[in-house]
Amino acid sequence: MTATGPKAFIPDEGIAPDEFEPNLVGRYKLDKVFAYASWAATIIGLVVLAFLLISTFADGLPRLGSSFLTSFPSRNAGRAGIASALAGTVWLLLITAAFAFPIGVGTGIYLQEFATDSWFAKMVEVNISNLAAVPSIIYGLLGLMVFVRILEPITGGRSVLAGGLTLALLILPVIIVATRETLKAIPDSLRIAGMALGSTRWQVVRDHVLPLALPGILTGTILGLSRAIGETAPLIVIGAQTFVPFLPTGLRSSFSALPIQIFNWTSRPQEAFHANAAAASIVLLVVLVSMNAVAIYLRNRFQQNR
């Protein structure tokens, strides 16, 4: 209430209207410029994507038939197919999910629900964020060392099991982070309500938190898995085969995968193999899009339930 303050508000001495300069014309002009600029940014991305899709479909669609899906690789581009690569990808997917899901979700639950605020949890948290940023080829080198060399008696060396374990390692950070974020979004009032009734921590997690969080956790897992099946570099490092004339027969079987097959075909000089690569890309795209569709479906159901 000091009268000496420079910004003392004195209602009687209002500011004269002519001290404002709205400049509406100039502001609207700037508005339009930004609208067009952001539109252009959107279009550039879309055009590149559309071009990629159109050229892939133009090259690959004629090659796509049931025999392409059921044939094994061949020196003759016209008779070559992706049977072993597709089967390898499915095997990898299942192995990766079987290891990454329980370990990742378990870690997420531990960090978010049990180990809050301890220095151990903080250390793990920092390391997980760092791991998520490690290039996938480094995971390949790790997989080569640990799963292919050291654990050879168990994995059988350059096997589909070693590949799946490497990919599981690769997407663990994704699943852990997704799990934690989902658990964070569950209101604390639910946990407190459970505890106040005499529940243990695990009862609260099992009965109230997990049922609500499951769709979100599954969404994160599926997105992680769809990253895994597109990965090429770590599989090359651990030694996925490009010419596998048989389907995987077991966990210790050698294997191929769709990205490996595509990589191999694009590096051949003959045009016909390039068409094969485009066709295999379409198959990979279809697999990816359908996995993402499942993730979106789960997320929508999650939001409705809340």
Binding site: P187, S189, L190, A193, A196, L197, G198, H208, L212, N305
Partner: peptide, 15 residues
């Protein structure tokens, strides 16, 4: 906590 029940500020029934 089983013997000493609690009701909170915001109604928080389980879903």
């Amino acid at each position: 906590r089983r013997r000493i029940g609690m009701v909170f500020q915001k109604p928080n029934p389980f879903p």
